[in-house]
Amino acid sequence: MELRCENISRLFLRGSGESNVFYAVKPSDFILCEGKVTEIIGRSGSGKTTFINMLSGLLTPSEGKVIVDGKDLYSMSDEDRSLFRNKHIGMIPQGQTALGSLTVLENILLPVRMYGDNEDRLRSCSNKAIELMERLGIKELEEVFPKELSGGENRRMAIIRALINDPEIIIADEPTGNLDDKTTADVLDLLKERSVKGSSVLIVTHEKEAFNYADIIYRMDAGDIRSYNV
């Protein structure tokens, strides 16, 4: 599934300073291609998170459109957009995002349970979850509550949770932030594999070692997004 942005931008208010409105993301066009790994690099504060939140339907752009599957994401109703996100967009937000009152496995299966309680599907997803946990080395944490997890374990849980519904679009905000080299490679292999199977994968990172995985690279600089050629 292709995702396309037309002239999107986002303004924020600065707490203090001379001009108090600024572009966190300057008006930009962007296409996320099917079957490819697209990467965005850039310094902290350059607007990467703001940008991909807009792509995921989580942050209303100040201007412009995000078009997925021929539909404008922000002119959908809240329910339609939420359902669409659940079915088609796997989002891995920045930071720690486990839900404290659910175990690791419950967290991972939540997107499956959210719309409909088909037992067969739940069982097959449960098996898939355990496979993925095994692959990323957190199999034994199945029944553990998030407060016992390390930062890296928490991130891996969030990655598996985003993949559990087999989304056509995968958007990951610094997914390898807290991970060691081996696990970073495991995660990026996994995401690459998804793109080979046809998903559109977008990864935000500022680590150069991720370069080997990218098909397309963009660079953000003070709200400007540009193609980046090595």
């Binding site: 939420s82 079915k87 995002t97 959210m114 949770r161």
Partner: peptide, 8 residues
């Protein structure tokens, strides 16, 4: 977080 995984 619930919203990122599709809660309305």
């Amino acid at each position: 977080v619930l919203r990122t995984i599709g809660a309305s």
